[in-house]
Design a binder for these strands. Structure first.
Lengths: 243, 243
DNA sequence: ACAAAAGTGTTATCTCTACACCCATGT
DNA sequence: ACATGGGTGTAGAGATAACACTTTTGT
């Protein structure tokens, strides 16, 4: 039996999610690497929509598949539908690869055909705490890695453009809705929050004014101080969600 | 031959456009009315996506079909994909109607089936100069009318929600991008522009401050005065696009 | 002369930015 | 004592909002 058929999945429609994480003062994206015919193919986290789920549910399911996480901040930002949006290049490599392999690892011809269709793709972006993601590697040909948003490899189709549109949407939403905290651990210092903003907007913020602005939002709860052992005043820890 | 088949159109995917116009100090939406079995069915302007066109092209084509206009401001704002997004209620009425009719007017069974599927719909909104639209009525069962955005009838499926999301998107874009002028004739007075903004945001604007803000944008060309014959100072006419 | 609506100016308020200063901490 | 980074205060610039006044037009 083939995996993808119109009874189960909506044809020609996919979801591509830009999964953002924050680490070492850099905004990162979860990028999948597929090794086919000695070529490295880079893609975003994508999937298809089941007939018995909404598109938001599909995006959540795909996110859980890749990261193990549930109840994550996820937002639809744009749908991509250029006329020549096909995976032909990849599906041809898959086909070659299949011929060389044997046994249960083979993909079904119908699945390869499914993939080679023109696809319209709904773009979502997710904000995750990078420390909570355990990257699993259940397929030797496939792996995933966190890559800095300004150092991304060339990805398939329009995936690079999808990232840049996602980043646009993120920048527009970060200060309106209060979503930046999804990229940080439970507790964080004001400096960490500021550095996150600097990574997202790719520009510096004044230390004191940033603090004033954030505190004026009335959504941060100030906790105890964090003694790091460094030779300076200990910063307060903060937590999202004022009591 | 049936009209809609997967070779020609992408299945289970549609476009619904909220066509905005401005008239008599009110923001209006073009609503189609379909009379079936003595019931009035209200819908937005929708259609399907051909295999050989992009989604933006499809939205433009649908808009031209309904209004006769080309090169119109059109923006994708959200994709709607709830699990139970079907037209079953309408397709059943269509079926009944079909049985009673005869001759070339009949719809094909396969087309009715096509419509009764679950659909995911890409939402666009368009801004048009209402005076340039000539509403054609080529089908006696179908007509279209401009209806005030806060007086809309109950429409099929989630079309009312689509309008409210479109209005949200419009409000977010009106002052950032300079798109309000698409709703007005070539030339207009400052008062008319202000009343347009008041209709969109549903709140009053201070006359003098509004004028200052608009002029500071440096996108309005001031033309000759407009003598209306009224017993007051004649207002300047303006035109979008500073020389 | 008057009413109605247009055009413009002035001041107060709020917000954002830059500069400055002091404080806690470990060496 | 000192360097380092954290917390906060204040003054200036710029944007926004509120109030006020003058001008044009037809009756």
């Amino acid at each position: 039996m083939n995996t993808f058929k119109p009874q189960d999945y909506i044809p020609q429609l996919s979801i591509d999610s830009v999964i953002f994480g924050y680490q070492e003062k850099e905004l990162k994206v979860l990028v999948s690497q597929l090794n086919l015919q000695n070529q490295a193919i880079y893609t975003l986290s994508g999937g298809f929509i089941k007939q018995i789920e909404s598109i938001d549910e599909a995006a959540g399911r795909i996110l859980k598949d890749r990261t193990g996480l549930e109840n994550i901040y996820l937002e639809q930002f744009k749908t991509f539908g250029l006329i020549n949006r096909t995976n032909k290049a990849v599906s041809e490599l898959l086909e070659k690869e299949d011929h060389q392999q044997s046994g249960g690892n083979q993909l079904k011809t119908s699945d390869i055909q499914w993939i080679s269709n023109r696809f319209i793709s709904i773009g979502y972006y997710a904000l995750v705490d990078i420390n909570k993601v355990a990257l699993t590697k259940d397929n030797p040909q496939e792996s995933a890695a966190w890559i800095s948003v300004d150092n991304l490899p060339e990805m398939i189709m329009d995936h690079n453009e999808i990232v840049s549109e996602a980043l646009n949407a993120l920048r527009n939403n970060l200060d309106e809705k209060l979503i930046g905290f999804n990229l940080l651990p439970e507790t964080f210092t004001m400096r960490e929050l500021k550095e996150l903003y600097e990574a997202v907007y790719d520009r510096p913020f004044a230390r004191n004014n940033f603090q004033k602005k954030m505190l004026s939002l009335n959504v941060l709860e100030r906790l105890e101080k964090q003694f790091t052992g460094a030779a300076n005043k200990a910063p307060y820890l903060y937590k999202f969600g004022k009591t």
